[in-house]
Amino acid sequence: MRLAVKQPTGSAEIDMTPMIDMTFQLIIFFMLLINFSEADQSERIHLPSSELAKPADAPLESPITLQLTTVGTVLLGGEEVPLAGFKPLLHREKQFLQLKADKKHQAQAVANATIVIRADAKAKTGLVQELIKVCQDTGFEKFVLRAKQEEGDLKR
């Protein structure tokens, strides 16, 4: 019996170029939009909204972000403490700022630092004021209240 000689078959090649192009474009998209400052934006805090809350043109000087929850605790970095026991944490931040600055400008470094208050929309205003008072007692003078940007007009 005569057997037919088989022709060598060429392997099927997939064109990878469009897939790699797309993948790189996706990576670039996510790289540009990634936000590494998540420690300063807790998901537990639902900021109040304002039509006038526009992102700042210039970065704030030595910002320290304090997040006030509805239950009256303060989030600073990764730590959560009740407002009553918050002073030592703030004092540590103050010492850190002083260490970073020259010896001559240590007092100025604290006064020039900006305290960013991210308080929950449902937090009590009295607690926000108490938080500001604790910061003032520690030597901080500049404060900003943070709100999320929202279109629309004033509500009642």
Partner: peptide
């Protein structure tokens, strides 16, 4: 969402 600041004079 974008966030903005209000300065408070204290």
């Amino acid at each position: 969402s974008a966030e903005g600041d209000f300065n408070v004079k204290m």
